[in-house]
Amino acid sequence: MKKIFGLILSLLVLTGCWDRREVNDLAFVTMTGYDKIDENQFRTSVQIPLPGAMGGAGSTGGGGGTQGGPYYIDSEIGRNIRESNDLLQRRMSRKTNFSHRRVIIIGEELARSGFKKTLDVLLDQPQSRITAYVLLTKGEALQILNAEPHLEKLSSEALRELSKENEGINVKNVLNDIWRPGKDPVIPVVLNNETENGTSKDKKKEAQLEGYAILKEDKLVFFTNSEETIGAKFLLNKKNHKNYTFPVEENGEVNVHFEKVNNKVSYRLINGKPTFTISFNISASIMQNEPNLELNNQETYDQVTNSLESSIQKQVLTLLNHSKSEGIDVYGLGWYLFRHENRLWERNLKENWREILPDLEVNVKVSSKITRSINPGINIKE
């Protein structure tokens, strides 16, 4: 009797997989692009792999679904991001699933008008990963989804690898920088560039990372130029920035490989106003000595290290001064004060920090040491 009662009870409790959704019924989105088309008009673009075309003949390289490639790209326009998603779903036979999304592309117009609400929508989707990489582009995000990488079947996978290699920014990082007092986001920029392969007809639009977007809260203010881009890598301590070329007066250029790059910030209060010093401690080895300088000579060694230090200092200050003039705290100096001088921050600096920034004194000091030349068996300086 007890066995029969237990069997009946189990039938009542075990309801089965009544709400299951088979893998064959899902469309896995690997990359999403968001654009602002006009006032109250937003476009969502998605890249969805086609499993049947991933390993078959004729699936080399990229290409949209209509071209027989290994992925399908589609987009829709709505009055907000959520509506554009819903409208896009109407013509898909499978339910879109965002649990495998690796990359999110933000178009320039949307970035200039503010995109925090877009990221908030992602947080509302339980499937969304806050570890998905965020990239900005000049122009529309849709064009980046149509990139045609040579080395990967999916442009989303190519961009994921590029972002990972360059210590990219993810959704969590961006939202943290928006929410933190005294810190503004810095996001890598992605562009489509045609491959440089001479007269070959196999030219494709490869996606590549090209500089940074500097934001004030969630709004794009400017894109970095070449000098500011290098300054950002040092300032944000991007450890992927391993090789560096700099001029040595009129003698040519020297290329070094960074063994160690550390930076730290210190401050002083003068009449209640902070003055900052950002110090860099660098250890490097020579990779290419184009002017064939004799580094065993102390005078020549000092000339090279001084050139290295002044070059880095100039590039870091270029970015700092530009961002400060726009009232942007690219390094997070205000966030540093929030943590170390909270009473001063809350009473005197919090409300008008952006007005203080343009006149804020920030010094940059660089100390470098070259330890080895190209031949690892030759010590240049102990």
Results as ranks from 00 to 15, higher is better:
86 D>H: 12
227 E>T: 01
47 Q>I: 12
318 T>R: 12
7 L>Q: 04
62 G>P: 06
31 M>Y: 06
221 V>Q: 06
31 M>V: 02
132 A>M: 01
253 E>W: 10
7 L>N: 03
279 S>F: 10
314 K>M: 09
44 T>V: 15
204 K>D: 08
92 M>H: 10
179 W>H: 10
171 V>S: 07
217 E>K: 11
285 S>Q: 14
107 G>P: 09
380 I>S: 11
212 Y>M: 11
285 S>Y: 08
138 K>D: 05
300 T>M: 12
85 N>W: 03
219 K>A: 01
95 K>A: 01
232 A>R: 00
338 F>S: 10
250 E>S: 13
323 S>G: 10
347 R>P: 09
371 T>R: 14
296 N>A: 13
266 S>H: 12
363 N>M: 13
189 V>Y: 01
372 R>P: 07
366 V>S: 06
281 N>S: 13
127 Q>L: 11
129 R>I: 06
365 K>P: 04
150 H>A: 15
220 L>E: 06
294 E>I: 11
108 E>Y: 08
324 K>Q: 15
20 R>H: 10
210 E>Q: 11
379 N>I: 15
192 N>M: 04
291 P>F: 03
36 K>E: 03
273 K>F: 12
232 A>F: 00
194 E>M: 14
318 T>N: 10
155 S>E: 03
120 D>V: 06
60 T>Q: 13
352 N>Y: 07
141 A>R: 02
27 A>H: 00
280 F>W: 07
30 T>S: 09
166 N>R: 12
168 G>Y: 00
263 N>I: 00
214 I>S: 02
166 N>W: 14
17 C>S: 02
252 G>S: 00
371 T>L: 11
291 P>L: 01
111 A>T: 06
24 N>T: 07
319 L>S: 03
89 Q>K: 05
81 I>P: 10
308 L>R: 05
241 H>S: 04
255 N>E: 14
259 E>S: 15
341 E>T: 03
380 I>T: 05
198 G>A: 02
